[in-house]
Amino acid sequence: MNIFRLAGDLSHLLAIIILLLKIWKTRSCAGISGKSQVLFAIVYLTRYLDLFTTYISLYNSIMKIVFIAASGATLYLMYVKFKATYDHNHDSFRIEFLLIPCVILALIINHDFTVMEILWTFSIYLESVAILPQLFLVSKTGEAESITSHYLFALGSYRALYLLNWIYRYMAESHYDLIAIFAGVVQTILYCDFFYLYITKVLKGKKLQLPA
């Protein structure tokens, strides 16, 4: 565990907490893509199956359980409790266009052709693109509330910090995982446009509004 990895994990945790608090406090999930949240739930469930097979550390297990639980709670708030506030019409990204290529890619490019390993690989690929429905929703409505922007910034920063962690691990431990690195780079690139808008607008107190 190095500082980049810890900062990445905390950023990930912060993102999830921000999202839950936003929905809970405003009693609304307007502006949030339920489809992205469904994809994240699939990501956590397929990746953290190793909770049952491999013990790594208490930290590792607790974080995995928290991510799965928070993801489930988010889905519950969006699809059950505050269903009426869910932005159906704008959340129109077709997730099968992400799911199917990720399944195929995981079957072709993986470290080991076993069920657990393919599910892990699938979750890594899916996570890299899972934010697309959310970014699509923001682009369709042309704006995002500040709190939603903070959520996206924390969530995007998490994988960017992991990239630093992987550079550090490569230098310090000669450890690297090409699948995770490739997907992490893709994931971070997808946020670049948003990062730019966040830094130039949201941090200066303006609302995130896309040019018409």
């Binding site: 990895r5 990930h12 190793d50 491999t54 790594i56 590792n60 080991d112 962690n165 995982d177």
Partner: peptide, 10 residues
Amino acid sequence: SDLKDAHDEL
């Protein structure tokens, strides 16, 4: 093992 190393991250 290498595989386990790969999975120590979240």
